[in-house]
Design a protein around this nucleic acid. Structure first.
Length: 836
RNA sequence: GCCGGGGUGGCGAAGCUGGUAAACGCGGCGGACUUAAAAUCCGCUACCGGGAACGGUUCGCGGGUUCAAGUCCCGCCCCCGGCACCA
């Protein structure tokens, strides 16, 4: 007899085949059933899956399998984020084509994912580099263009020399390229932008809908990134001219303290102001220096505040005083209007600047119970207070004065309430080849003309030869560039920039709902049924990038009539990194653990088990070779347990949490103990599954049950009732463990004589009455310290508990010479004797 | 500076509504089996003292509330992440 050695490879191949044959993970819209859409961030097809993928997809697979067992119609798809720079680099290196490299990688990675036994509906697989996919993206681009949400403008942009392309603001991290880590420079270029700023308020506001469903830190990061600030736009008249300069301020209450004006070096009015003045040359030189500084140095916190007087003045609309106009190196052209009213007494930057250049200062906010004196101040006072030196507004609370001053100035059209955002529009054109072509042509006569829908997709020429220098071959590719203007029919040139790859990942989750549809991007019914994604899972590195773009994109598509949805991802789980020796795995550190070799050695089940057991999903996980050994050992333990029961003739086709009647009546002793543990395990595992997907404690609970079975099996396997109880417990182990290690569980489940697949079984419930204990361990404390434990009847009342406690020798010893003041009884748990 | 997360054995970690701190795993130690080793099974393992019974100490630090605090409140230290001259 015997099952033979636990052979993961053989079992895993077998069950992967069976699942495919039975098509049990393929789903369709079914309005009669509740749906659940679980999605993991799709991978870039780099060629190899890494442990981060394994973790991400294992978490997702447990969720999918669990929800399926809970009766949900579960959509769980997989695909490929297939456009991107590495394909071009690889193509140059290996003298191949990006498409060939990408498709080969997809094939490899698909095989690797299949080896891990993930329960995907593979029919929905998509690759974003296929024209059938990006055709719709081009269509969206045109709709957004029509709506005015896409525009083209010549502006300074982030240029990465390493990648030979521009980057969006979100893709620059500490002055470096998010992908290649190369220095990012500023360049003036004609670029396509998506008007994400039009949705700034929506994006902030709808974060409320995600409260409690998304990790707080992701929500805060998005809030920070969007950077909303409420204030007013104020107009200052130039001295001796009927012209005005506008500033944005969050502190209109401090207007009377505004003693000078600071402009950004790039401010268009600078040249106008200095024209013909003696200061002109000096100011120009200063502006040139500032503008030529690199981004990082200019943005540095410790940059010395410097400036230069333009010779011009404007007038404070409340005080009527002259305000000298300066150019200052810390004023940014990109925020607000590029001009700042300087209130040195109440703004630290202005304070430092004024002290340095000996400019006038005026206190206009006095804190309660204190009087500030400008001559003794060592820093600006930016906190709340009461207005002073502000004429008719004196004595008002500063928060109330904000509105009052805006209202007052608004009468003369000198102020209006304004909200400013830090968020900038999303630059989406890339000077790269391996991306979706932007569907417009440039005609000498008609200008920029959108490609008509009927001509979509604008195909990326897959036969184009990549260039050695890494630059896009498209501009030189005449067969691509030269075309006819859709409007006038005359000769025209195609746009050769391609779209940012984040454009593809901003809607793929919607395409999965009808991935094969040919006559439109989405099937309306499927989209409505499946969306939103109920549980999205991925790395924290996309807290801003992908997650912000997707939120925006869905709102924009909503406003184009494609969907009614506002938020794509109902719940978000950001999994922690997989570390080795305390550091992120990387080739350069030489600490990479290859999932394939782990699967080869221990099997997919053990790999999944370890990665889910070692740490809760959100936390970083330290890879441990000894740890995966332990996981493998546990699976062997389960295997041998089943084998031993089979050999003893004690393995019965009894389902999980069998009823007492199925077990042949009332139980006593070890049989009852085991059944209690079994039911309690169902309780704990279900609770931990539901509560934040705490798979590590789910697995720990199942290990405990298996340990209990080991210690009780010898006394139980000899009797029919004992065998039944053991079999029920084993069924429970296999059922509850099946989302984690599905292959092994299916195999042993079959060995038990069960007919249906575990994958399609329902999640078990537990019987409250099975948890009842006759006796409990009573902990006795004296003054809060544990002094004894004893077994007492579970239903003992207060008085009985007191009596029992007083029989305990050690308790009595600790009470010697003391009188009992109070007795606190926590039913079923402990008693605390307060004595003194 | 602002915001968010975290600090528990030798290690990864548990700890529910305030009620036995350290479940589960790794590592270590001891035993059984074996000619031997591996594998497996059983036991011990927070720290200090003690042969043991038992006692003391312990959840970053210091206070507080409470019969009782890892858990609640106040102050502080350290680590990780995000934003940062944003007017």
């Amino acid at each position: 007899m015997g099952f033979g050695k636990y052979d993961p490879q053989q079992i895993e191949d077998k069950w992967q085949e069976r699942w495919t044959e039975s098509r049990c993970f393929e789903v369709e819209v079914d309005a009669s059933r509740p749906k659940y859409y679980v999605l993991e961030m799709f991978p870039y097809p780099s060629g190899k899956i890494h442990m981060g993928h394994v973790r991400n997809y294992s978490i997702g697979d447990v969720v999918a399998r669990y929800k399926r067992m809970r009766g949900f119609n579960v959509l769980h798809p997989m695909g490929w984020d297939a456009f991107g720079l590495p394909a071009e680099n690889a193509a140059i290196k290996n003298k191949t084509h990006p498409a060939a490299w990408t498709y080969a990688n997809i094939a490899d990675m698909r095989t690797q994912l299949k080896r891990l036994g993930y329960s995907y509906d593979w029919r929905r697989e998509l690759a974003t580099c296929r024209p059938e996919y990006y055709k719709w993206e081009q269509q969206f681009f045109l709709r957004l263009l029509e709506k005015g949400l896409v525009y083209r403008k010549n502006s300074p942009v982030n240029w990465c020399e390493g990648c030979n392309t521009v980057l969006a603001n979100e893709q620059v991290e500490e002055g470096k390229c998010w992908r290649c880590d190369g220095e990012v420079e500023q360049k003036q270029l004609e670029q396509w932008f998506l008007k994400i700023t039009a949705y700034a308020e929506d994006l902030i506001d709808d974060l409320k809908l995600l409260d409690g469903c998304w990790p707080e830190r992701v929500i805060t990061m998005q809030q920070n990134w969007i950077g909303k600030s409420v204030g007013a736009q104020l107009k200052f008249q130039f001295k001796g001219a009927d012209e005005y300069i506008e500033v944005f301020t969050t502190r209109p209450d401090t207007l009377c303290g505004a003693t000078f004006m600071s402009l950004a070096a790039e401010h268009p009015l600078v040249e106008k102001l200095i024209k013909g003045r003696p200061e002109a040359e000096k100011v120009r030189a200063f502006c040139r220096d500032v503008a030529n500084m690199d981004r990082i140095k200019r943005g540095a916190e410790d940059l010395e505040k410097e400036g230069v007087f333009t010779g011009a003045y404007c007038v404070n609309p409340l005080t009527g005083r002259d305000m000298p106009i300066h150019v200052a190196n810390f004023v940014l052209m990109g925020y607000g209007t590029g001009a700042v009213m300087a209130v040195p007494a109440h703004d630290q930057r202005d304070f430092e600047f004024a002290r340095k250049y000996d400019l006038p200062m005026q206190v206009v906010i006095q804190p309660k119970g204190e009087t500030l004196d400008i001559s003794t101040m060592t820093q600006a006072y930016a906190d709340p207070g009461v207005l002073a030196n502000s004429g008719q507004f004196d004595g008002q609370d500063n928060s109330a004065a904000k509105g009052a001053i805006i209202d007052f100035l608004a009468q003369n059209n000198l102020a209006k309430p304004t909200v400013n955002y830090r968020l900038r529009d999303w630059g989406v054109s890339r000077q790269r080849f391996w991306g979706a072509p932007i569907p417009v042509v440039h005609c000498e006569k008609c200008g920029t003309v959108p490609v008509p829908d009927a001509q979509l997709p604008v195909r990326l020429p897959e036969d184009a030869q990549v260039r050695e220098d890494g630059r896009s071959p498209l501009p030189m590719l005449e067969s691509f560039v030269n075309t006819a203007c859709p409007k006038c029919g005359g000769p025209a040139k195609r746009e050769t920039d391609t779209m940012d790859t984040f454009m593809e990942s901003s809607w793929y989750f919607m395409r999965y709902t009808s991935a094969r549809k040919e006559d439109g991007p989405f099937d309306a019914e499927a989209l409505k049924y499946w969306m939103p994604v109920d549980q999205y899972i991925g790395g924290i590195e996309h807290a801003i990038l992908h997650l912000l773009y997707s939120r925006f994109y869905v709102k924009a598509l909503r406003d184009c009539g494609y969907t009614e949805l506002s938020e794509p991802f109902q719940n978000l789980l950001t999994q922690g990194m997989v570390l080795k020796d305390g550091a992120k795995m990387s080739k350069s550190k030489g600490n990479v653990v290859d999932p394939n070799s782990m699967i080869g050695r221990y099997g997919a089940d053990a790999t999944r088990l370890f990665i889910l057991f070692a740490s809760p999903p959100e936390k970083d996980l330290e890879w441990s070779d000894a740890g995966i050994e332990g996981a493998y050992r546990f699976l062997n333990r389960v295997w041998r347990l089943a084998e031993e029961l089979a050999d003893a003739g004690a393995l019965k086709p009894i389902g999980p949490v069998a009823s007492l009647s199925d077990l042949g009546g009332e139980l006593a002793g070890p049989a009852r103990d085991l059944r209690r543990k079994e039911h309690d395990t169902v309780r704990r595992v279900t609770r931990d599954m539901e509560n934040k997907f705490q798979f590590n404690t789910v697995i720990a609970a199942l290990m405990e049950l298996v340990n209990e079975m080991y210690s009780l099996k010898d006394g139980l396997k000899g009797t029919p009732q004992g065998a039944a109880v053991l079999s029920s417990a084993l069924s429970t182990v296999l059922t509850l463990l099946s989302p984690v290690t599905p292959h092994l569980c299916e195999e042993l489940w079959g060995c038990m004589g069960h007919k249906e697949h575990l994958a399609t079984l329902s999640w078990p419930g537990y019987d409250e009455s099975a948890l009842v204990l006759d006796e409990i361990e009573l902990v006795v404390q004296v003054n809060g310290k544990v002094r004894g434990r004893l077994m007492v009847p579970a239903d003992a009342d207060q008085e009985a508990v007191r009596q029992f406690a007083m029989t305990h020798e050690n308790v009595l010893r600790n009470l010697e010479g003391k009188s009992i003041r109070k007795l606190i009884v926590v039913p079923g748990k402990l008693v605390n004797v307060v004595a003194g």
